[in-house]
């Protein structure tokens, strides 16, 4: 729960549902906008949230995206029940994707999700379990000193 020192949000994400896809990221973006944070950091966080959410939508059955904002950092955690990532190093490469042809034809699954997140995030932690699920934790620092 939200305490006086942080703001928390947890949003469910449906797998394979392109009707609701992007809603969690939009909500996170709108939330961050109300905090008057530097616009560039808000955009970074929005991109991370969007890519993480779309990874759940395109690959997993269900999941959730969580947001925690403190004075020090924006933390986004995306957890899903899904196939897991076979080879994380490969998944971090630009253009590498295991998405189906149908999904690629829809303009998703271009293999830019995790690389985009890595570009925007200060820290990126990926825990993945084959045929169980994946947990992606993204941290964007708000205070430059002491990191």
């Amino acid at each position: 729960m939200t305490s006086t020192n942080s703001y928390d949000l947890s949003l469910p994400v449906k797998g394979r549902c392109f009707v609701t896809a992007g809603q969690a990221a939009s909500k996170i973006k709108r939330t961050l906008e109300t905090f008057n944070l530097p616009p560039k950091l808000v955009r970074c966080a929005a991109i991370c949230a969007y890519e993480a959410e779309m990874n759940i939508v395109t690959h997993a059955c269900r999941g959730q995206v969580g947001l925690r904002v403190t004075e020090k950092a924006i933390r986004i955690v995306a957890e899903d029940e899904g196939p897991g990532i076979q080879d994380v190093d490969l998944a971090m490469k630009e253009g590498y994707s295991t998405a189906s042809q149908e999904i690629r034809e829809m303009g998703f699954g271009a293999g830019m999700g995790l690389p985009n997140i890595k570009r925007c995030a200060d820290e990126l932690i990926i825990d993945t379990y084959p045929n169980k699920g994946t947990r992606v934790e993204i941290i964007i620092h708000l205070q430059t000193n002491g990191g």
Binding site: N5, P39, E71
Partner: peptide, 20 residues
Amino acid sequence: EPRPIVHLDRDLKKAMQKLQ
């Protein structure tokens, strides 16, 4: 130049409380 709207509060802690 960016001219962002000031939402809720300039102070992050207060803004978080107000959003809640």
